[in-house]
Structures are given as C-alpha cells and as structure tokens.
Design a protein around this nucleic acid. Structure first.
Length: 498
RNA sequence: GACUUGGUAGCUCAGCUGGUUAGAGCAUCUCACUUUUAAUGAGAGGGUCCUGGGUUCGAGUCCCAGCCAGGUCACCA
C-alpha cells in the first residue's frame, strides 16, 4: 500500500508513541464529565472537567499551546502549558507527545479546569491528557475565519458522499442536517404515538412487490428456491393490519425502486406510511397540514422555511385544488370533457409524448406532471385523481370518474400521497384486473394481483384513510437542501476502485 | 440511458496557441515563540497530472476508448 508523506509521518509517530510505552489505541473507558456546547452554554470558570474528542487544530507557541477539541456537540478550546502538564523534570508529554507525536484528527481525553482567556474565549486549562486513538490519515484542513467564512472547504461531492465520516468531521453543517432529520422523524413518531397509533414492522422481502407501481429489485431465496423482491411499498401489509383490528398503524418504511437516480431519487428511500380506521381523505388533509406545521415549528422554531431562496410556508391550512381544476387552470384543457382519444390529442397539442400503452389516467397524469406539478411551490393538496391511476383508492363519493386521493405538492415535488382507502373487495378485484389489462398493453409498472390481500379485504376492512410521506424529500425541504444525497448519510454510489 | 462539465499534492485550486526540473494557499516537516484563535516569523519536503491507447522531437495540455463524479434531460405515482 502506497502511503502519502503525511501518512508515513503519522505512522512513524504511532511507532514512537508505542516506544514511549503509550498505547495509541487503549481499551479502557475514558470517563467524560462534560461536553463542549453544554459546557460553553452555561460556562463558569474553575469547573473541573474530563472531556474527550478529536483534536481539530493546534496553535503551538513554545511552552504553551492552544488546541480545538471537537466532540459530538461542537468544539471547545484547550490551553496547554508545558509546566502544568509536566510538573516534574520530564517534559516528554508536552515536548514530544503533544507537540510532535499528536496530529490533527487524533482522539484525546483531557482533564482540566475551565477558565476564560484574556481575549474572552471560554477554554479548558489542561492538567493532563491521554491518547485515545491515533489517526493515520490527515483530515482536510478546513478553516473558518472570524467572519464565519470557510476556507479550503472539503467540498468535492464525490469525496463527501463516499467518505461521509470525513464530511461529518469537518463540515459542521452536515452534522446539523442529520440531527434535523432525526428530529423530524422523532417529532412525527411522538405525534403518532400520542394518538395511540401503533408503530409496526412489515416485510421488506416480498413475494409480490405491491402497493405501488415501480420496478422492484429482485433477489432469490435459496432455501425456498424462489424469487423475492425488495419492497417498493408497504401499503398492502399495513392495510392487512387494519383488517386485523388495529385502528392506527404506521411504519417508517425503507422502500427500494430499481429506477433512475437524480437529485430527488435514490434507489432506497424512506416513506412514512400511516393508516387510520374510520377516517377519510378530508380528515387526512387536516391531519397532514397540522402535522407538517408542527414538524416545521418543532425543528425550525417557525413554520416559514427558506428553501433555495424561496419562502415555503408550512402554516396550515394548505390550498386544495382538484386535479381537473389544476389542469384546466394551467393548460385550458378540461379533462372531464375528453375521452381517451381526446386526451391523447390534447397531449399532442401540449407537446407531451404519449404511447399506446397509456390509458386515460396515465395521460392525465402526464399532463399534470408536465404542465402543472412544478408550479406548486407552496404546500398544496392536489385532489381527486382519475380512477385508473389509483387502483387502491376508493371511488369519489360524488363522481365515479375520480378517486378520493390527494397528493401534497411542495416546491414542485410530491411529498405525500393519501387516499380514502378502497375497502370494497369486489371493486378492488376489478381494479387489479384492470391493472393486468394495462400490463398487457405494455405498462411494465402495472400492479400484480395480490390474492391474499383481496382475501383480507373480503374479511372486511373498515373505512380507512392512509398516507405516505416521502421523508427524504420532507427533510430536504426543512433543511434547505436541493439534493437527496445531502439528507441520506450514505447515498448510493458506484463502487470505488481500490 | 443521452448530452454536458470536471478529475492536477492530504484539502481547495491555477497551469494560456503542446516546450526547461508541474505551481499557489492551507495542511505536513525543521527552528523560534508561555493567552492564541484562518496564531505568527524563518526555512524545507511532498505529485500514478483518473486509467489505457494514439499523434508528436516533445503531452497535465491535442485525439480515441474507458472509469468516476456533478449538472441538465429521459426514466421514475
């Protein structure tokens, strides 16, 4: 293995530590009494502390030095004085170990006492330190000046995503994004638990990849000698649980789709699915706008969030626009007045590509997707989708051409998708059969028939409303990120050659 | 998958119409320095110029192929 100059120097330092009888990778617990941010938030001089973390910088001035110690909360300045660390004649710990053999990025544990420097920086005067882990590779040398400008930022996206551990060490904002992600998920979970809804786990490996229309990843179970699919959705399993008598179930579901990757798509992504018995999609709209208002407030302290320079207002209520009205408004086409051929013609006029496999619903979906979707920046419920786009949704109570479905659009992308769930087993069977017909026409994403799911419905499912929320996209909106890679700790990448 | 931009030191980048020994800042090493904070001053070392071919007296630079990434588009409920 070829080592860079800096790595070779660090390996030599590692050996010298061992020669001095210092274990660079000690096993025993190091007791931590304080952490950086909480210590600084309530800072009092003269407090004895024991802290641990990564040494992120050093300013050596002869017999005294300053260093930055980074822990999970942030950083704090250390002050080291040779004669305080080495009280006797032997100055090795300061002159050799601290000044020569430690490097930026090494983990150390320190003991000392808080004080304020003469320029007012809360600091810890170190009385002793211990090597906790020696780093062989140098961290990128990111520096921040007094105006907060970052110099020589570690910014290459390929390196940042491949080595997220380095990204997290040196780019403070990255850590904040993932803390926010965790807070968002926790806020939702707490809200749902408070309602008495049950968090469940359903199969990731499915024999029939149902509940959505997408290309699945396929794998093989050796013992059963059968194909299995990574789930594209968990919807049909959660509904089985409603059949079983739970009145509210939810799951943060990692879903997998074997499709393209871009700024808003990763092959694996997280959807929160929630099903509540005896509710309809109107109730769900209210529940969603309240939830998102609360999530934005709890994570951000306010309900107006800036995303890529645009203000997004999560304060409920959100606008409700039917799909027909949306298309009418933005294209002047009244989908109610047209049959399949008429819709195909309208698409042609609007310069939307069509093919013979597309049914009425797909054509309408194309019109909305091409001409309307990106225009909804503020949170908006698009309601009442065509029947043949929504095979799991109850027919609209007032109009048999539509379903009781909404999608929540924010910043031009879909964040949530919800229905009054179809619980009529006979209708559901017909809808699946219609999907099979679409499949025969060439739609390779048409749904399979899940006979067991139909059987479950035949045992009776109460009226239910369900929703799926794209957690990754929601996190993007609430953390002002425009790439899904920025909200996934380890976004999918082609393997690296070593 | 298509188009496009890029890949040069640990990091961020410069390197012109091809031309001596490939540069800078930070980082690293040596020396000095007991309250600094992008510490400072002096000196030094560090390169598979993404990979493989080709053109040429000569390639980081031009050509071809490939790999990886970003962006745009396509695909994608």
């Amino acid at each position: 293995m070829i080592r860079s100059e800096q790595e070779q120097i660090r390996l030599a330092s590692l050996q010298q530590l061992k020669d001095l009888g210092i274990n660079p990778y000690p096993a025993e617990e190091f007791v931590v009494t304080h952490r950086s941010k909480s210590l600084k938030d309530d800072f009092k001089p003269g407090v004895k502390v024991s802290m641990a973390g990564r040494m992120m910088s050093r300013r050596i001035m002869g017999k005294a030095s300053f260093a930055e110690l980074q822990d999970a909360e942030g950083t704090i300045q250390l002050y080291l004085n040779r004669d305080e660390i080495c009280e006797g004649e032997d100055k090795t710990m300061y002159n050799a170990v601290f000044k020569k053999l430690l490097d930026r990025g090494d983990f150390i544990g320190i003991e000392g006492e808080t004080f304020v420097t003469k320029v007012g920086e809360p600091s810890v005067k170190v009385s002793g330190f211990k090597v906790l882990s020696k780093a062989i590779r140098p961290l990128p040398a990111v520096k921040t000046d007094e105006d907060g400008n970052v110099h020589d930022a570690f910014s290459d996206p390929e390196l940042r995503y491949r080595m997220r551990y380095v990204d997290l060490c040196v780019n403070e904002k990255v850590k904040e994004t993932f803390v926010a992600r965790s807070n968002i998920i926790r806020t939702i979970r707490e809200a749902f638990d408070k309602e008495g809804w049950l968090e469940v786990d359903t199969p990731v490996l499915q024999a029939i990849p149902g509940g959505a229309a997408a290309r699945p990843f396929e794998t093989h179970h050796n013992a059963l000698d059968m194909p299995l699919y990574l789930r594209i959705a968990n919807e049909l399993y959660l509904k089985r649980l409603i059949v079983g008598g739970f009145e509210g179930v939810y799951e943060f579901s990692r879903n997998f789709r074997n499709e393209g990757m871009d700024r808003t798509h990763n092959p694996e992504f997280t959807v929160l699915e929630l099903y509540v018995a005896y509710k309809d999609y109107n109730w769900m709209m209210k529940a969603m706008e309240n939830l998102l208002g609360n999530v934005a407030a709890s994570v951000h302290g306010k309900t107006v969030v800036t995303l890529a320079g645009k203000e997004i207002d999560f304060t409920p209520p959100y606008a409700r626009v039917t799909m027909r009205d949306a298309i009418l408004e933005h294209t002047n086409v009244d989908i109610d007045a047209l049959d399949e051929d008429g819709l195909r013609e309208a698409c042609k006029t609007l310069n939307i590509d069509t093919d013979p496999s597309m049914g009425k619903g797909k054509l309408i979906d194309e019109m909305f997707g091409e001409k309307c979707e990106h225009l909804y920046i503020q949170p908006t419920f698009i309601t009442d989708y065509p029947v043949d786009m929504s095979p799991l949704t109850k027919i609209h109570r007032d109009n048999p051409n539509y379903t009781e479905r909404f999608e929540l659009m924010i910043n031009g992308t879909e964040v949530a998708n919800a229905y009054s769930e179809l619980n009529d087993p006979i209708d559901q069977r017909e809808r699946f059969e219609a999907q099979v017909e679409l499949g025969k026409r060439g739609d390779d994403e048409a749904m399979f028939i899940d006979q067991d799911f139909l059987r479950a419905l035949e045992y009776g499912m109460p009226p239910t409303s369900g929703v799926g929320i794209g957690i990754d996209r929601l996190v993007m909106m609430l953390t002002d990120q425009t790439s899904i890679q920025e909200v996934l700790l380890f976004p999918q990448m082609r393997p690296e050659q070593f």
